[in-house]
Design a protein around this nucleic acid. Structure first.
Length: 399
DNA sequence: CCCCCTTTGAAGTTC
DNA sequence: GAACTTCAAAGGGGG
């Protein structure tokens, strides 16, 4: 397996990434790796298993219909990608799945054609056995959902992006949808659609729009994502809706890549749809893989991380950490010098600590009063500090 | 609408 | 450096 020269101490493809196989009697599973059996199901939630087994046959028709639907969908996207060369070199690297997450500066040693062709720098990954488009399942940086024409990307983007010029031609294919066009895509395209909503303003400082940039939903809305990257793409249809900040997602690890590839297969085999149960199966199968088989995914993950680092050198996994109630989170996320960005409970501790100890006793009760009103959101650590500072147990105080 | 579940691995934080 | 936490994907389920 060729190794990219990471040129540093961060050996992304280190051998120690290889996991040790658990001794859970999985040798048998290795033998039956490709045949999902009832024994697999037996260890799952019984309800799910029973439902699966009972419906095994009856669901076949439904499943077939679903596959047909997927096939039509896949064909539709194949049409959109007619101008994208397809690599069929077999095995793991069968199809060009990294299209939307181009290896801009990484000649792909896995592709026989070399890095010359527009898609040559992309890591081809997965075979899709169940009618899903070959580009669909494994990598989130796929170009599968994009129409060939790039209406909103600057035409000279390739000239602006310097070394990324080669890929920018692809990118114009990968990120072509206007924000208004997002609604036309299917739910499975939503991951990509978020990045599309960025428009040209969603460019990474490198000038590369990246599908990993997505507006967060829910908790991720609090992210302190690189604000320079985000400009409100267009007027919000709803006045009260806060503008979504895009989020650079974490690169997928080896197991996530494996899950992405194998999920459809497991679903088709066992008719389960509950992801929790499916993931249990996938976890077992992952352990049942040989080291060589796993190595393919570790290598892919390593490349993914490497490219991610190149595209977003300032990105940190910490950027996506969200838990407003935890002091350590706020301190970690914003640092001590930006306590104005901390949440209330997090600010409480340093605020108290800012007082001279002699003054604390006199203000302690009033502070505690305020703190107790926010007690539900006060973290245990905050409570401990409060107790220590005030030499009382705040739970014993009757406000 | 949002969170939980469930998996492994990477990265971050805390002590 | 160990231990712990969070987040990546997925989508059904439930509040």
């Amino acid at each position: 397996m060729p190794q990219l020269n990471t040129g540093g101490g961060d050996d992304l493809g280190a051998n120690d990434e290889m996991i040790s196989f658990k001794d859970e009697g999985e040798q048998d599973e290795k033998i039956q790796e490709n045949a999902f059996t009832e024994r697999d199901l037996a260890d799952l939630k019984s309800s799910l298993v029973n439902e699966s087994e009972i419906n095994q046959n009856t669901n076949a028709v439904v499943r077939r219909g679903h596959q047909d639907e997927q096939r039509v969908y896949a064909e539709k996207h194949r049409e959109l990608l007619d101008d994208v060369p397809k690599h069929q070199d077999g095995g793991m690297y069968k199809t060009p799945a990294y299209s939307g997450y181009p290896f801009l500066m990484l000649p792909d040693p896995y592709l026989p054609n070399g890095p010359v062709s527009p898609t040559a720098n992309k890591v081809s990954v997965v075979q899709q056995p169940h009618g899903v488009h070959p580009l669909t399942s494994l990598l989130p940086y796929s170009n599968e959902h994009f129409s060939p024409s790039p209406p909103h990307l600057p035409a000279d983007m390739s000239q602006k992006t310097g070394v990324h010029r080669h890929q920018s031609q692809d990118l114009s294919t990968f990120y072509p949808l206007t924000p208004g066009g997002v609604s036309q895509i299917t739910p499975s395209m939503s991951w990509f659609s978020h990045s599309l909503m960025l428009g040209s303003s969603g460019m990474h400082p490198t000038g590369i729009p990246h599908p990993a940039i997505v507006p967060p939903s829910g908790k991720q809305e609090h992210d302190q994502f690189d604000r320079n990257m985000y400009v409100k793409p267009h007027p919000e249809p709803k006045r009260d809706r806060e503008p979504k900040k895009p989020v650079i997602k974490k690169p997928l690890n080896a197991f996530m890549l494996y899950m992405k590839e194998m999920r459809a297969k497991v679903i088709a085999e066992c008719t389960l749809k509950e992801s929790a149960a499916i993931n249990q199966i996938l976890g077992r199968r992952w352990h049942a893989l040989t080291r060589e088989e796993q190595a393919k995914y570790y290598e892919l993950a390593r490349k993914e991380r490497q490219l991610h680092m190149q595209l977003y050198p300032s990105w940190s996994a910490r950027d996506n950490y969200v838990n407003p109630g935890s002091p350590k989170k706020c301190r970690a996320r914003f640092g001590l010098n930006q306590q104005t960005d901390w949440c209330g409970p997090c600010r409480c501790v340093p605020f108290l600590m800012s007082f001279h100890p002699a003054s604390l006793s006199s203000i302690c009760l009033s502070l505690l009063s305020a703190a107790l009103h926010a007690l539900p959101s006060l973290t245990p650590r905050g409570i401990v500090v409060l107790n220590q500072l005030c030499s009382v147990n705040i739970f014993e105080i009757n406000i």
